[in-house]
Design a protein around this nucleic acid. Sequence first.
DNA 1: AGTCAAACCTGGGCGC
DNA 2: TGCGCCCAGGTTTGAC
Length: 281
Amino acid sequence: MPELPEVETVCRSLRQTVVGRTITAVEVRLPKIVHRPEAEQFCQLLKQQNIADVARRGKYIIIKLEAKQALVVHLRMTGKLLYESCEIKPQKHTHVILSLDNGYDLRYDDTRQFGTMDLVPENQLQQLPGLNALGLEPLENSFTLEAFSNILKGKHQKAKSFLLDQRNIAGIGNIYADEILFQARIHPEDTTSLITAPEDVEGLWFAIRDRLCQAVDHGGSSIRDYVDSFGQAGRFQNYHKVYGRAGQPCITCGSMIESIKISGRSTCFCPNCQPRRVSAG
DNA sequence: AGTCAAACCTGGGCGC
DNA sequence: TGCGCCCAGGTTTGAC
């Protein structure tokens, strides 16, 4: 479910609610969600800590604590961070509960149990596996056309694989990869080495920012599970042009949207609007 | 270096 | 109603 726009929406909602609060109690109901430290120590270390800030890097949520520790949460497919009254009964898939000092809880809920939590000293964030290998942050000012061109240049991946590879650009998942490639009129199986024309490179760079920004503005996309920390669904699914539209006519040209598999991921595209590039010769 | 399949899990949707 | 199968927004690992 959650890609950059959804994770950003969760972070924004958490900033309104949990920053400044104190964690009064911690309950880990499914220990495997907590990677480090071991669950018992995790609870001990979090208790009585004050929440200083909430940040995002790629698809990671970083809850910063005043004692210079950071709680790093990855939602994977079905994870949710919910801000709920402690009087509401925890659900079947509520795995971690942080009780706050105002009668509310910050709860981690995850049907498929793929998500992770790590509590690390803030100065060791850069060593956390996964977080330490992330590429450019696409909504930051540092994501310039030049920086983007430089990473594109050295790669020989399929365009779709390039966008999904978190070491290149952080935060893009299956939905937005398809939407970005449609806007940039690039075939998902074209290798990045074919994307050399300046207008193509700039078009792709622009599409990345544009699709992600638009999605953030609409509170992300809710396909099945995603909600923000208030339990609110996103609205950007209403603006998807190719994702989930296989067999339906293209919004731009009326051709049938096709669905193929690229490294196991379903990929929707318009064969007319996104023609294959052919290498010279 | 790049690609792919499998693994981690539960639940929804489909065909029979 | 129920069973079996396939599918799902992510990441890591190991094999080719």
